[in-house]
């Protein structure tokens, strides 16, 4: 019996495909997410929109809160640790959290490195804005990726930007000769072996969700149309007027993204979406995606 192998980690991520992972801050919200059809929940103390508004250092959630959420639902529970915070990650692993998100939404703890994720039994998901970043996270042992977008904005433009960039880079990679690939690896800061694997597969070797700014069923459908395997919805659900109805609608839209009539139906009468922020209005130092 082998536990914590890469196949067990990446295989688990495959089970999320086509699904929605929802940020929750209470057991009640977690149950609403489960009932709506979420494939997992992300246990947090504050959703990204509040982290952005309140400022200060954002850390791993209180273990008590995470345990309450784990006890409230039957679906997998994820939790975030700070970038490079090995101790927070060890605590989350000890709690039995099903997946750790080493997340730019929290304040980074290590200015030099991400966590060496091969050292853990629990799988990790990490954010990326482009292929180089995706490859570096894979080299560190990430079992799942998500494009970063810009969390807590309710504005999907950065999520689209990152997915477009990734798609474009993979498309170009597929055409490259070996010599070009080696130069490209240097250019984007990616290990050659991982680029070779992606070239051969014609896609990323792990599940890749979209995140950061998804607020409507149409946003979720858009990200799926662009090739995301599923979506993370952070503030978009519980910062909206009618979380239950919106959560259900986003779940349906994520699966039936190619059915405009169904999208129209589920988008109807959802109440106010979360208030959005224009990216240009955010000072550069407050953008989470560059962490």
């Amino acid at each position: 019996m082998l536990k914590g192998t890469y196949r067990v980690k990446t295989g688990f991520a495959e089970m999320f495909k086509g699904g929605v992972i929802m940020d929750v801050t209470t057991p009640e919200q977690a149950q609403i997410a489960e009932e709506a059809g979420a494939v997992a929940v992300m246990a947090l103390e504050r959703v990204p929109a509040d982290i952005r508004a309140q400022g200060g250092v954002a850390r791993m959630a209180d273990p008590k809160k995470i345990k309450e959420i784990m006890n409230a639902v039957s679906i997998p529970v994820m939790a975030k640790c700070r970038i490079g915070h090995i101790a927070e990650a060890r605590i989350l692993e000890a709690l039995g959290v099903d997946f750790i998100d080493e997340s730019e939404v929290l304040t980074p703890a290590d200015p030099f490195h991400h966590i060496d994720k091969w050292q853990f039994k629990v799988p990790f998901v990490c954010g990326c804005r482009d292929l180089g970043e995706a490859c570096r996270r894979l080299a560190e042992g990430a079992a799942m990726l998500r494009t970063k977008g810009e969390a807590g904005t309710g504005n999907v433009v950065e999520a689209v930007r990152h997915m477009r960039i990734l798609n474009d880079q993979i498309r170009r990679l597929k055409e490259m000769s070996r010599a070009e690939l080696v130069t490209y690896a240097k250019e984007i800061g990616a290990p050659v072996e991982i680029l070779e694997m992606i070239q051969e597969l014609g896609r990323l070797p792990v599940v890749n969700f979209a995140a950061g700014g998804v607020a409507t069923p149409a946003d979720a459908a858009l990200m799926r149309m662009l090739g995301a395997d599923g979506v993370f919805v952070g503030s978009g659900i519980f910062k909206s007027e009618n979380p239950e109805k919106r959560a259900k609608a986003i779940v349906l839209a994520c699966t039936y993204y190619d059915d405009p009539e169904l999208l129209a139906k589920v988008s109807e009468d959802l109440g106010e979406a979360m208030p959005g922020i224009e990216i240009e209005k955010i000072p550069e130092h407050a953008l989470m995606q560059y962490r």
């Binding site: 999320f16 495909k17 489960e34 494939v39 259900k248 779940v251 699966t255 169904l262």
Partner: peptide, 15 residues
Amino acid sequence: PGGESTAQWRLLSRA
């Protein structure tokens, strides 16, 4: 296939 049975069933019945 594998996945989350609760999510799959909700999708199946709502669709």
